[in-house]
Design a protein around this nucleic acid. Structure first.
Length: 418
DNA sequence: TCTGGGGTCCTAGGACCC
DNA sequence: TCTGGGGTCCTAGGACCC
């Protein structure tokens, strides 16, 4: 048996935890660069603010509805996420952290699953101030479906247990097919055209035929809806296969010098992530693009590949190659809106396979240097590479950032005693 | 004026092998 | 006139997830 636990309106809830004064008011959290709405409190949803709408399109609603707007604050969300996961681990030792606000738990052998769900909710609420929904079922897909129901209907008290087939069927009969885990926009419109409108319709369809028409993924989803578990709990997170670091700019970039700074910064951040993963990479791509919303065909999206001579996680190698790739695809006269660096083709830092005829100069003391840099940046201050520049005018917008209440000493909330 | 970021998996098709 | 069968690996692109 699986339980899927996820936090209601996670980012928006994190913002209200330390702000009792805004309780009951609509809250929205914006994407990086303060671009789009990516999280909404219950009150914000009720006003009709849709997921992913551009911020400027709802700006006129802010004042009349007293909407509280926040830039995204990932240090805060990451820390609260960690707290939630630690509590879940105490309640059910076997768990898979599926996303920043969700985890699958192995709840096999627990007698009263509904009671377990209620206990999970109350414990997390008490320890973190966050409210979760709990969905329980014999497969991950059914647990997801149960979780959807737990959040949608308040009379469930936030816990739905689908251990019996009767309850599975009853719920599937009223849930639109597009709400099933793994059924996105494209699939649901094609399925609906075929007359498959609810989750139950999908569960009752012919798996072999659906595999032919669509893919093995859909065949698995059908099996999962019928109680046959195809996706197991993955307790140990596998190593990443790629690392992406990309950002939109606060203002368009038109000068190569600025873009070089940006690419150097993204390359450095990607290299740091790579070292955190204890991997080295051989593949690097760089992309730059103009805004896709310009209407006319100005949209440009070039990508370049590089294959380094040897696997590396040295920031100097990765910055150097990234900037060289950038120079190859740079075009004057464009107003660039976004750029990024992608790393791939990893190998573990402790076992690098060298080709028989490879000839390269291994940088001396590379690992030691990177370690020192990372340590300085963690504890004592900040060092960076000259190529990243000192005055980053293009840096993303974050005008409405809340304090990092739980991760910065200077931001710790002060309690006033009257 | 202003529109996010970071991932995974699968498939088809081409190039290649014996 | 008639031209096999069985594989692997790689890449681009599409779909999905949060």
């Amino acid at each position: 048996m699986f339980a899927l636990v996820d936090v209601n309106s996670f980012f928006a809830s994190c913002e209200t935890v330390f702000r009792p004064d805004i309780l009951g008011l609509p809250v929205v959290v914006l994407s990086n660069n303060d671009g789009c709405v990516i999280a909404r409190s219950k009150e914000a949803k009720e006003i009709g603010i849709k997921m992913a709408v551009p911020y400027y399109q709802i700006k006129h609603l802010i004042k009349p509805h007293k909407i509280q707007v926040f830039s995204s604050n990932y240090p805060l969300y990451g820390d609260l996420s960690h707290r939630v996961m630690s509590i879940l681990e105490e309640l059910a030792p076997k768990l898979e952290i599926y996303s920043i606000d969700e985890a699958f738990l192995d709840v096999s052998g627990i007698d009263d699953l509904f009671e377990f769900g209620k206990k999970t909710r109350s414990t997390i609420l008490k320890c973190t101030g966050l409210t979760v929904g709990v969905g329980i079922g014999p497969t991950k897909t059914l647990a997801k479906l149960a979780n959807y129901a737990a959040k949608k209907w308040t009379k469930t008290q936030g816990v739905v247990d689908l251990s019996t087939i009767e309850r599975q069927k009853k719920l599937m009969g009223i849930v639109p097919v597009g709400e099933v885990w793994g059924i996105g926009r494209q699939l649901s419109s094609r399925l609906e055209a075929m007359g498959v409108k609810t989750a139950l319709d999908l569960a009752n369809s012919n798996p072999k035929q659906m595999r032919k028409l669509f893919s093995v993924v859909l065949e698995r989803t059908i099996a999962e809806l019928n109680g046959e578990s195809c996706l197991s709990l993955e307790e140990f997170t596998p190593v990443k296969q790629q690392i992406v670091c990309s950002r939109s700019f606060s203002q368009r970039i038109t000068k190569l010098a600025d873009m070089r700074q940006a690419i150097s910064s993204y390359a450095e951040r990607a290299a740091k992530k790579l070292r955190d993963e204890k991997q080295r990479c051989k593949h690097i791509s760089v992309f730059i693009k103009t805004s896709p919303f310009n209407g006319n065909k100005h949209y440009l999206n070039e990508i370049a590949h590089g294959s380094m001579q040897a696997h590396s996680s040295d920031s100097r190698d990765i910055i150097h190659l990234s900037v060289r790739l950038l120079d190859k695809i740079w075009q004057d006269g464009q107003a660039y809106q976004k750029a990024g660096v992608i790393l791939g083709d990893f190998s573990n830092e402790n076992m690098v396979q060298v080709g028989l005829f490879d000839e390269f100069e291994q940088r001396k003391n590379s690992d030691e240097l990177m370690k020192v840099i990372d340590e300085i940046n963690l504890k004592k201050g900040r060092v960076w590479f000259a190529g990243q520049g000192t005055k980053q005018d293009w840096k993303m917008k974050q005008d409405l950032l809340s304090p990092s209440y739980t991760t910065k000493w200077k931001d710790i909330p002060i309690v006033k005693v009257k």
